[in-house]
Structure formats: C-alpha cells, structure tokens
Amino acid sequence: MITVNLDTISRLMDLARTFHAKEQVVIPQEPNSPSDDWALQALADHDDDEYYAEFESIIDDLEPDQQQEVVALMWLGRGDGTLEEWDDLLKQAGEQWNTRTADYLIAHPFLAEYLREGLDLQGYGEE
C-alpha cells in the first residue's frame, strides 16, 4: 500500500515526462542504486531547469520513508521485484536511502512509466 499522496506521484510523473522530453537532457546510463553519485554529474547542467527544480522540491518535501516508497514504486514498476516482494523493495530502498533521492529518481529516463506501472501493479490503475 502506498502512503504517498497519489496526486503527488502524478505530479512527479508529469514533471519527469516534461523534463525528459527536452532535447538537451542526456542521461548516460541507468543508476544501480540511489547512492551512485553519477546522477549528480549527469544532472549538474540542469540545476536551473524549472521542472527539475519543482521535481526536486516535491521529493525533498516528502519524509524519508515516503521518498523510499517512491523509489520502491519505481523499482516495482521496472520489474526489480514483484508485488509480493514489496516489503523487501521498501526495506532495500530504506537501506540505500540518502539525501539525493530526487537526483536518483529523475536520472531514470523512463521514471514516469515505471511509476505508472508500479501504481498499476499496486492496484491503483489510471488515476
């Protein structure tokens, strides 16, 4: 069960789609964990992007356990685990949590699709 407001997740999905649709956004590879610092390097050129700034602000306003839920939801949606393994995904997200969650998430070019799939698997369908 997701405790993060679904409207918040929907806004994050919209911002991610808009951010990634820009031509100048280039993400060289997928990160393996939230602690990888490559995301900071890849996103350094986008600090002044309004969509990135709003995305980061929303994530930073979430409590750490809610940030971990969003990460676990992304992992679920990209197939890193099943719904039956949700608790394990949450635990892993907690173990790997750091203050750069927004960078880690936005660095995934298919973030919006992963979150949508994760919500679908959680039974939320199209919101």
Rank of each mutant, 00 (worst) to 15 (best):
residue 10 S to I: 13
residue 18 T to K: 10
residue 17 R to E: 14
residue 12 L to Y: 12
residue 14 D to S: 01
residue 26 V to R: 14
residue 21 A to S: 13
residue 48 D to L: 14
residue 14 D to Q: 08
residue 42 A to W: 15
residue 31 P to T: 08
residue 38 W to H: 10
residue 33 S to C: 15
residue 31 P to M: 12
residue 51 Y to W: 04
residue 29 Q to E: 12
residue 49 D to F: 08
residue 4 V to Q: 00
residue 4 V to N: 04
residue 41 Q to W: 07
residue 28 P to T: 13
residue 23 E to Y: 01
residue 48 D to R: 10
residue 39 A to W: 07
residue 51 Y to I: 01
residue 39 A to I: 09
residue 26 V to L: 11
residue 44 A to R: 06
residue 39 A to Y: 14
residue 34 P to I: 11
residue 6 L to F: 00
residue 48 D to T: 13
residue 51 Y to T: 05
residue 43 L to N: 15
residue 23 E to D: 13
residue 47 D to I: 08
residue 31 P to D: 06
residue 53 A to L: 14
residue 54 E to T: 02
residue 49 D to E: 02
residue 8 T to K: 08
residue 42 A to G: 02
residue 12 L to T: 06
residue 24 Q to T: 02
residue 32 N to R: 13
residue 41 Q to L: 10
residue 56 E to I: 00
residue 43 L to P: 07
residue 3 T to K: 06
residue 26 V to Y: 15
residue 22 K to R: 15
residue 44 A to F: 04
residue 35 S to W: 13
residue 15 L to E: 00
residue 36 D to R: 03
residue 3 T to P: 04
residue 6 L to M: 09
residue 53 A to Q: 15
residue 55 F to V: 05
residue 29 Q to C: 06
residue 6 L to V: 05
residue 19 F to E: 14
residue 37 D to P: 04
residue 42 A to M: 12
residue 56 E to N: 08
residue 9 I to D: 01
residue 50 E to Y: 07
residue 27 I to T: 07
residue 20 H to I: 10
residue 30 E to T: 06
residue 16 A to W: 09
residue 32 N to D: 15
residue 32 N to W: 13
residue 45 D to Y: 05
residue 50 E to C: 02
residue 46 H to G: 05
residue 6 L to G: 01
residue 35 S to R: 15
residue 19 F to M: 01
residue 43 L to D: 01
residue 45 D to P: 09
residue 55 F to Y: 15
residue 30 E to M: 04
residue 28 P to L: 12
residue 18 T to S: 00
residue 54 E to K: 00
residue 4 V to G: 03
residue 37 D to W: 05
residue 28 P to G: 12
residue 54 E to H: 03
residue 37 D to T: 10
residue 28 P to M: 06
residue 27 I to D: 01
residue 8 T to D: 07
residue 43 L to R: 11
residue 53 A to P: 11
residue 56 E to G: 01
residue 38 W to V: 00
residue 22 K to S: 06
residue 12 L to N: 08
residue 47 D to H: 04
residue 8 T to I: 11
residue 41 Q to S: 12
residue 31 P to K: 08
residue 53 A to C: 06
residue 10 S to M: 08
residue 55 F to L: 11
residue 25 V to R: 07
residue 30 E to D: 15
residue 19 F to Q: 08
residue 17 R to M: 07
residue 29 Q to P: 05
residue 42 A to C: 06
residue 47 D to E: 15
residue 40 L to T: 06
residue 36 D to K: 10
residue 42 A to Q: 15
residue 15 L to V: 09
residue 39 A to S: 05
residue 53 A to H: 14
residue 32 N to A: 13
residue 14 D to A: 12
residue 7 D to L: 13
residue 47 D to F: 05
residue 22 K to H: 03
residue 18 T to R: 05
residue 10 S to K: 15
residue 55 F to C: 02
residue 52 Y to C: 10
residue 24 Q to P: 05
residue 17 R to I: 05
residue 54 E to L: 06
residue 38 W to A: 08
residue 19 F to K: 02
residue 18 T to V: 09
residue 52 Y to N: 09
residue 26 V to N: 14
residue 8 T to L: 07
residue 43 L to V: 03
residue 10 S to A: 09
